[in-house]
Design a protein around this nucleic acid. Sequence first.
DNA 1: CTAGTTCGCCTAATATGATTAGGCAAATCC
DNA 2: GGATTTGCCTAATCATATTAGGCGAACTAG
Lengths: 191, 191
Amino acid sequence: MAGRGLTVERITRTAADLADELGFDGLTVSAVARRLGVKDPNLYAHIENARELKVRVALLALEEMADRATAALAGRAGKDALVAFADVYRDYAKEHPGRYTAARFDLDPQTAAAGAGPRHSEMMRAILRGYDLPESDQTDAVRFLGGAFHGYVSLEMAGGFRHTPRDADASWTWTLDTLDLALRSRSRKPT
Amino acid sequence: MAGRGLTVERITRTAADLADELGFDGLTVSAVARRLGVKDPNLYAHIENARELKVRVALLALEEMADRATAALAGRAGKDALVAFADVYRDYAKEHPGRYTAARFDLDPQTAAAGAGPRHSEMMRAILRGYDLPESDQTDAVRFLGGAFHGYVSLEMAGGFRHTPRDADASWTWTLDTLDLALRSRSRKPT
DNA sequence: CTAGTTCGCCTAATATGATTAGGCAAATCC
DNA sequence: GGATTTGCCTAATCATATTAGGCGAACTAG
């Protein structure tokens, strides 16, 4: 049997691959079962329901991104760190569109807190340390940055930039330069 | 019959309302038919398939937002305009989460171009005129702003800010201030 | 006015997907 | 070696999407 040894891990990995191939919305229990060479009902021995499948993919994606980000951040600070971190998101979204979309899946608070979500905020805060913002601006800046990164990537992924000839990479660079500029102008110490 | 006089418009409006109530993903042909008091197959006399239903909701949302934005922008310029415009998005997303999500639906280029999408870019460009950016930065800035607005709203809507106590409105204000700052630092003329 | 047509809605039927209940055979335990 | 557990399967139900075809009321042409 092709399905020899089903495990939650194997199911999740397969689901993640399928999400990348079919789009996160196209991810179905049936498709995963098919790909694994087993019948649909088998999967329910390992997962509760379709939602759990998606949640697991979301958590996987969050973790993979956090791992990459951690690596990218090593030894960098300031704008360097900002750019490296942002590139991790954008590159990941390009390589794994389904996973990336999954990462935005609406997780319930506990699940989210148990996943890699907090690692992401942590890293963001670490980057911001390089800008020396007032303590009170910290959270605002995390939200601002997170939104800016995600928004850009998400619009680009949705094809929102196809209408205009301007190169998406160039706009990305401009965006990061501008974010850096913005944060520096918020800094307590002069640049 | 409750369904007296089905029209694409009525179907679309009903679909949009359902999207707001159930979430865009929960929007189904069946649910719309139920709400309209007719059997599912009837709808196919007016729409091609489920996708078209979603596309129509997306176009409706885009248009409604554009209308609001147009009104909000009247008589404003500079940061005032920026804030008014951004608030339109955020408020709309709060009032109509399903419609807002729909507005990000992946439309094919022609459909998108025929809809209100271009109006949005136009308004964004109008706002940017107040900042007097170099010609070449125009498109980059539109993408940057669009991404920042959408990203923030989308994270907030997805509950991404629930983890931290900090008030989402305050962060929004900070974000808009920072965007204004960023654009001003990109301006050709001094502030 | 009336046969023919169109309109608006319905029932029947198929396919896919989610999910539950229960069967069976090989591997494992005492 | 029989009892059990494990791993997968079949059968069955329900919701949704979508197609095909029926039926009566309103509408139109002669």
